[in-house]
Computed example of a mutant assay.
Amino acid sequence: MTLTLLAALFVCILVVAVLYSSVGHGGASGYIALMALFALPTASIKPTALVLNILVAGIATCTYRRAGQFRWSVFWPFAVTSIPMSFVGGALQLPAIYFKPLLGAVLLFAAFRLVYRQVENPVPPSSPPQAVAAAIGMVLGFVSGLIGVGGGIFLSPLLLLFGWATPRQTAGISALFILVNSIAGLLGHVSSLGNVMHGSAWLAAAAVLGGLLGSALGSRLLPVPAILRTLSLVTFSAALKLILT
């Protein structure tokens, strides 16, 4: 990787980490989108995205939990099945001919989700039925591990749609959900760490810095609607590139 490419990726990863962590996400779909746009090797995308996701989601988890924006009763029924299934999904390696269109479809969903933002609901949120949450967690965990994301991009709209958490609580719950699933997915395919792209230490530094900034400032200063529209555009562009090439 050239110095120019590494510098460009550093800046892009920093920006994506700031934007995603400001809404409680680790940013895996954003990192995947960037790496696809930069035409990086397919084998490097999944493990690199998971490593960066773990760093940013860990920071976001600590920040939102300290702010009191977390509900254990909502989190654990999803996590108890998603964690082992993320491990299983992470152990599988799809051929590029299947991986690229599937990843493109996931990114299209992510782009659609990013333009959706529910306002604060004055009605106190309810807790999901445990059996339903466990079934959903199983599916989300497997898909997350298979693709190389933490699953928050799928869990967040469900929590908001069914009124199981407020937007702020959704950010806190999703952050920890992303963290545990990203770790499980990476453990499911530890050998893939050898494919983490060259210069990943610099990208990790960018992700950590961005995660700190985004988690601290996002809920107060950053214009969330504009952030989501920008991220959606980048993600949508990468999805089209993966599907059409």
Rank of each mutant, 00 (worst) to 15 (best):
Trp202Thr: 12
Ala110His: 04
Trp202His: 14
His25Pro: 04
Leu228Phe: 07
Leu244Phe: 11
Asn181Cys: 05
Pro223Tyr: 04
Gln118Ala: 15
Pro128Gln: 08
Gly199Ile: 13
Gly188Met: 01
Arg66Ile: 10
Met138Thr: 13
Lys46His: 09
Leu108Arg: 01
Leu114Val: 11
Ile45Ala: 03
Ala79Asn: 02
Pro125Val: 10
Phe142Leu: 15
Ser29Leu: 10
Val74Phe: 03
Ile136Trp: 04
Phe78Gln: 03
Ile136Thr: 09
Thr245Glu: 07
Val16Ala: 13
Thr245Trp: 05
Ser200Asp: 06
Lys100Met: 14
Ala96Asp: 14
Gly148Met: 04
Ala28Glu: 00
Ala216Tyr: 11
Gly90Asn: 10
Leu19Ser: 12
Val208Phe: 09
Leu161Asn: 02
Thr42Val: 15
Pro84Gly: 08
Val15Ser: 15
Ala8Lys: 13
Leu9Phe: 06
Phe162Met: 05
Pro122Thr: 13
Ala17Cys: 06
Phe38Trp: 08
Ser82Trp: 02
Ile147Asp: 00
Gly163Ala: 11
Val234Thr: 12
Leu213Met: 12
Ser174Met: 06
Pro77Arg: 10
Thr61Asp: 09
Gly104Glu: 09
Val123Lys: 14
Cys62Val: 15
Leu14Lys: 06
Gly150Glu: 00
Leu231Glu: 09
Ala49Leu: 12
Gly210Leu: 13
Gly26Ser: 07
Ile173Val: 13
Val123Arg: 09
Tyr64Cys: 11
His189Glu: 10
Pro95His: 08
Ala28Gly: 07
Ala165Arg: 05
Arg168Asp: 12
Tyr31Cys: 10
Ala207Val: 13
Arg168Leu: 15
Gly26His: 06
Phe78Gly: 02
Leu6Gly: 08
Phe162Val: 05
Ala134His: 04
Leu92Lys: 02
Tyr64Asn: 12
Ile32Ala: 06
Gly90Leu: 04
Leu187His: 03
Gly210Ala: 14
Pro223Ile: 09
Ser192Cys: 12
Gly172Glu: 06
Leu231Ser: 02
Pro157Ser: 03
Ile178Lys: 00
Ser22Thr: 07
Leu34Thr: 11
Arg168Ser: 08
Pro77Ile: 14
Gly58Glu: 10
Pro223Val: 14
Leu244Val: 15
Ala201Cys: 03
Leu40Trp: 13
Asn53Phe: 04
Val18Lys: 03
Pro129Gln: 05
Leu242Ala: 07
Leu222Thr: 02
Ala60Gly: 10
Ala239Thr: 09
Ile32His: 01
Trp76Ile: 14
Leu228Lys: 12
Leu3His: 12
Leu9Ala: 12
Pro101Leu: 07
Val119Met: 05
Gly152Ile: 06
Thr2Cys: 05
Gly89Ala: 04
Lys46Met: 07
Arg117Thr: 14
Val208Pro: 01
Leu222Tyr: 03
Gly27Pro: 04
Ile136Arg: 00
Ile59Asn: 01
Ser144His: 00
Arg168Phe: 10
Ala184Trp: 01
Gly30Glu: 02
Ile183Asp: 00
Ala205Val: 13
Leu5Glu: 11
Val56Ala: 09
Arg220Ile: 12
Leu233Thr: 15
Asn53Val: 10
Ile153Cys: 00
Gly148Asp: 00
Ser200Pro: 00
Ser86Asp: 01
Phe112Val: 13
Pro77Trp: 06
Tyr64Phe: 15
Pro157Lys: 07
Thr166Gly: 07
Gly199Asn: 12
Leu107Trp: 03
Ala96Trp: 02
Ala131Asn: 08
Gly211Phe: 03
Leu158Lys: 01
Gly148Ser: 04
Ala238Arg: 03
